[in-house]
């Protein structure tokens, strides 16, 4: 495993150095993590913080960072209030930008680009809405997302 000062800097673009440096590796995050309880071999928050703060780029190539449920038990129980979940978002953003993310991580965003929502409303759902007496004129909002993307570095 290679230590990269450059990678450490990149992480810091998304996540304040001061926050990451607050971690003293006590491991309380892992002991409160529902994923770690059941699958310690697959996901260990303490270790992910360690690798990110040292600057080991391999961490964004691994499936581990995609196994956080973002439940925030770790953050609420951290004696130093390090936001592990924010770090996970930073690492995932980097993993996507560099093309290491698994396909499943991109699927939902494809739907959002298509509809402006996670999903479109099927005719069946529109009929159910009608039968329940609530608004059944449900529209997609593709063009709004296109505009936002165009002003945020656009397509990835």
């Amino acid at each position: 495993m290679k230590v990269s000062h450059e990678f450490r800097k990149e992480v810091m673009k998304f996540f304040e150095e001061s926050k990451l440096n607050m971690c003293y590796q006590c491991g309380k995050c892992s002991s409160f993590c529902p994923v770690f309880w059941q699958h310690p071999e697959k996901f260990n928050p303490r270790k992910i913080i360690e690798m990110a703060s040292i600057g080991i780029e391999d961490i964004i190539k691994k499936p581990d960072i995609w196994r956080c449920t973002t439940c925030y038990e770790c953050v609420e129980n951290c004696p130093q209030r390090v936001s592990f979940v924010e770090l996970i978002y930073a690492l995932r953003n980097l993993s996507i930008k560099k093309g290491f993310a698994p396909k499943e991580a991109l699927d939902e965003f494809e739907s959002i680009k298509k509809y402006g929502f996670i999903m479109t409303a099927t005719d069946r759902i529109k009929k159910i809405r009608q039968s329940l007496g609530i608004d059944s004129e449900i529209e997609d909002k593709k063009e709004i997302i296109e505009k936002i993307l165009a002003k945020t570095g656009g397509e990835k």
């Binding site: 996970i88 996507i96 959002i112 997302i145 990835k156």
Partner: peptide, 22 residues
């Protein structure tokens, strides 16, 4: 009727936190 997806705090924020914010 003008709203979009909130957007999803997990997969959109994971994709790009800036797009999520916007």
């Amino acid at each position: 009727n003008d709203f979009t997806c909130c957007p999803d705090p997990v997969w959109v924020r994971s994709y790009d936190a800036e797009i999520w914010l916007k």
